[in-house]
């Protein structure tokens, strides 16, 4: 059985639904992520699960139990807020122990110590939140949410207030902590790298709809529709045509692989080419002209023009330094065919 079932939920304010007939499920121990630009409804989903918003239609079940009529404070769900919402008048220890009302004093002290140790703040228990750095506050917020041993943790844009460097390190750290505790979690973010780094399952949201709920690998290599392909990673859509039951052809040749069932031979399609599909190969008879170059340290991202003028992106090892206007040999390595009918 799934730990969390989000079942056909619709929430509207005024006429337009903010969350539109949305469903997904999270297995026990899994980390899920809702990914989308601001205003796509992802935070509303989180607020519904936490119980801060009354459910208008649909069902949310936690371990089989319907949550609609359970008030927020009775749900075994912890939350890490975007601004952390630490209690400024309480020490770090008191913050972490706040959800442990009703525990015996000895157990409470032990649990707080255990969590401060877990998040690497064992010495900071007597400090106040304002005495900590942003990253440390973030960790206190996580420890506070974990302390009462909830079934599920919700994280609302947890790293958006942090520097890029710290964000990357902390997202890895938080994932480790959640996995070590065997905790299930749902994260909400607009940052794709964060989503991929943290989550086992990622859902791409757009205008209140869940376009695809899948592993990061499949989102990247088998996007369900154009919107997902567009949102996840980089790439260019190149016009082509279905040439057989499992093949399609376009400017760079004929390629075979699995195609969506609804496509038939003769259909005009757009083929998605990722930068990592286009491989630099001096021996290849195919050449393209460098239009623009973007040096990223470990790799170059070249914008290339095919003979027809069609632009493609290519990811090339960083020592292949080519000038703008130069023609370079390329070939395609298409492990997955991604094509959308037109």
């Amino acid at each position: 059985m799934m730990l969390l079932e989000f079942d056909n939920v619709t929430q509207s304010y005024g006429a337009a639904p903010v969350v539109d007939a949305m469903s997904f499920a999270l297995a026990d121990g899994e980390i899920g992520c809702l990914l989308g630009s601001s205003g796509c409804g992802k935070t509303t989903v989180l607020r519904c699960i936490a119980g801060f918003e009354p459910l208008q239609s649909g069902d949310i079940r936690l371990a089989g139990q319907a949550l609609a009529k359970v008030p927020a404070h009775q749900r075994p769900i912890g939350m890490v807020f975007q601004d952390y919402a630490l209690f400024p008048h309480l020490t770090v220890s008191a913050n972490v122990g706040f959800g442990l009302k009703g525990w015996a004093r000895r157990e409470r002290t032990a649990r707080v110590a255990e969590l401060l140790e877990l998040v690497g703040l064992a010495d900071s228990g007597s400090k106040y939140p304002h005495e900590l750095s942003g990253g440390q506050q973030q960790r206190v917020a996580l420890a506070r949410a974990l302390a009462p041993k909830p079934r599920l943790i919700l994280l609302d844009e947890p790293f958006s207030n942090l520097d890029v460097d710290l964000r990357e390190r902390l997202s890895r750290e938080v994932r480790d902590i959640l996995k070590r505790e065997g905790m299930s979690a749902i994260l909400v973010t607009h940052d794709q790298h964060e989503a991929f780094a943290m989550a086992d399952k990622v859902g791409v949201m757009q205008q209140g709809r869940l376009r695809q709920w899948d592993t990061p690998y499949r989102l990247y290599h088998q996007p369900a529709d154009r919107a997902v392909a567009d949102f996840i990673g980089q790439g260019v859509l190149v016009p082509g045509m279905v040439s057989g039951p499992a093949s399609l052809s376009f400017e760079l040749g004929e390629f075979s692989g699995q195609l969506p069932d609804e496509l038939a031979a003769g259909d005009a399609v757009d083929v998605l080419l990722r930068p990592d599909d286009v491989v630099h190969d001096d021996a290849s008879p195919l050449t393209a002209t460098v239009l623009a170059r973007d040096f990223r340290g470990t790799v170059f991202h070249y914008t290339l023009a095919l003979p027809s003028g069609q632009k493609v992106l290519a990811q090339v090892p960083s020592h292949h330094d080519h000038a703008i206007g130069e023609a370079i040999g390329i070939r395609l390595e298409l492990d997955h065919l991604i094509a959308f009918g037109r």
Binding site: A50, G51, F52, P71, A72, H73, Q74, I77, G78, M79, F81, D83, A85, L86, F87, P88, H89, F98, G99, K101, R144, A145, P148, L154
Partner: peptide, 24 residues
Amino acid sequence: GQVNAGYALGMRYDQVMRLIVLPQ
């Protein structure tokens, strides 16, 4: 957010008021 944080930690309305909101 302070109120919601209290609810998320299992506090009732009166506890949230007494322990979080009113002291601040």
